[in-house]
């Protein structure tokens, strides 16, 4: 059910300080999300996919990975051209499709198609433990990092528990449908999931206390900002820089 991080072919890019990758992902996301000019969005889109090809990731796999996120955007495509007022660009039978509606939906699609592959490349290829470690080094509150790592660790356990409960229900001839019985069955299943999660948490916590846990995970892996990372920082600043510069120049000619 859970996807593994995408394997990134070995290259100098892979050895960049993970903190740098996370910060770049955030900067790039904001630069593109806040842009409105087509040229800026196009540049962001180009940079993201070019970087994916340069790093040796298969664009097809990245596309498959990000495809589910476009559900909401499909919904916007279905609604916006019909509902946003403005001159019609096309006619679909009796229905006018408004130009501003299509432009709005198109802009959103382009933004998502630039930001999501960038996140996949920069963060989606990192192991979650490394992300947690890097966030800790970026001064994210320790409790939050602990929460994140703990949550990730137990998703797999809880998921297995869910599968077991669901299998047990199916073996007792449970067939889901649109009725109260189904909803109550799922509710009991979910309540059981939450209950076992809470009991397990108390147990795990006691076990961790016995091993001297103070709220901080120590790792053997070391994150260092190497000399080459300085050049990488400059290189990685280019895409968000281009997008912001284009947006600025086109808005204030």
């Amino acid at each position: 059910m859970l996807p593994e991080p995408l394997p990134l072919p070995d290259s100098p890019f892979r050895r960049i300080d993970p903190r740098l990758r996370i910060v770049t992902a955030v900067l790039f996301s904001f630069a593109v999300a806040l842009a409105s000019e087509w040229a800026a969005l196009g540049a962001g889109f180009g940079c993201a996919w070019l970087a994916i090809i340069l790093c040796g990731l298969s664009p097809w796999r990245v596309l498959k990975r990000i495809a589910p996120a476009f559900g909401f955007i499909l919904f916007l495509w279905a609604v916006l051209p019909l509902t946003v007022p403005g001159p019609a660009l096309l006619r679909l039978g009796p229905l006018p499709l408004s130009a501003p509606g299509i432009a709005l939906a198109g802009g959103i699609t382009l933004k998502a198609a630039a930001i999501l592959p960038a996140i996949t490349l920069l963060i989606g290829t990192l192991p979650v433990a490394t992300i947690g470690h890097a966030l800790q080094r970026l001064r994210v509150p320790e409790k939050l990092v602990y929460l994140l790592l703990f949550c990730y660790r137990y998703i797999f356990v809880i998921e297995e528990e869910y599968r077991r409960l669901e299998r047990a229900a199916r073996l007792r001839s449970f067939r889901p449908g649109t009725n109260l019985h189904t909803y109550r069955t799922y509710a009991y299943l979910i309540a059981m999931l939450f209950l076992r999660a809470a009991l397990r948490a108390d147990q795990v916590h006691r076990a961790m206390l016995c091993r001297g846990f103070h709220g901080r995970f120590h790792t053997l892996e070391e994150i260092r900002f190497r000399a080459t990372d300085r050049y990488w920082a400059l290189a990685l600043a280019i895409p968000p820089g281009i997008v912001t510069a284009l947006q600025w120049l086109l808005l204030h000619p």
Binding site: Y146, L148, I155, V157, Y162, L193, A197, A198, R200
Partner: peptide, 14 residues
């Protein structure tokens, strides 16, 4: 916090 982490995992799965 540990409990919240595991409950967050259940929330994620559910």
């Amino acid at each position: 916090t540990g409990r919240a982490g595991i409950l967050a995992a259940s929330f994620f799965v559910a």
